[in-house]
Design a protein around this nucleic acid. Structure first.
Lengths: 117, 117
DNA sequence: TTGACATATTCCTATATGGACATATATAGT
DNA sequence: ACTATATATGTCCATATAGGAATATGTCAA
């Protein structure tokens, strides 16, 4: 089989850096496509295609306004990514250093108590 | 051009769900390849290939022990993902609800003060 | 209606993928 | 040396991609 389609889920969709850039650009409010074209310096069809992928995974929504289409962010679609990666946060965040000490202690104690395996 | 290689960065590497499963399996300590094969129910060559991708983006490291190769997690490689997606956390987390109210108020006030644009 | 503008879709192509399978490499034990 | 075990690599293939260019669709304005 080939790689899973970009439209499979948010993980696949945001693997492409330009799509992340689009989401970032939409962070402070809805924008028409041409705004994104200028901001990102991409060809218009590419932006439309990226937006389609983002729409399919629910990361953006559209609204018609005259001949423009205003895209807006739907950050909730990114929650699964956040949920998954947050499980690893303790591996680099200082906030967890103290907790790590405690956990290491507990681990050491456990191994001291029951020495099997 | 085609899609960026899976080995381009952590974003591309973890877009594949089995690779996330591998990282999850390594979360509580190093494991030999065959452990992962059993745990994930994948063919051994697939696991080795996934591990190769994960190694290339720095998400895992290896250590030789006899004829086994013990893989261990390097969560730090996931930090860029966490950093990026955390910027959107406020869009779904209750923790930010109160903050949002304040920000909306400020926005409204600004628009009341200077009505240009 | 005609034309300009805004956006979406289609066609093309080079490239990488993941699965299945076969095989290579390396180490341990006898 | 030979065999079993553990892991890595290579081959084949169907499939999806992102970019470029061309074109289609839709909407406003005169």
């Amino acid at each position: 089989m080939a790689r899973a389609p970009t439209t499979t889920d948010a993980f696949n969709a945001v693997a492409e850096p330009r799509r992340r850039a689009i989401l970032d650009a939409l962070a402070d409010g809805e924008r028409p496509v041409n705004d994104l074209v200028e901001l990102l310096g991409l060809a218009q069809p590419q932006v439309s295609k990226h937006l389609r992928v983002l729409r399919q995974v629910g990361a953006v929504e559209v609204r018609d306004k005259g001949r423009q289409r205003l895209y807006r962010l739907n950050g909730r679609a990114l929650k699964p990514i956040h949920d998954w990666v947050s499980g690893y946060e303790r591996l680099w965040s200082d906030r967890f250093d103290q907790l790590d000490v405690v956990l290491e202690d507990l681990k050491a104690k456990e191994q001291g108590d029951e020495g099997d395996q």
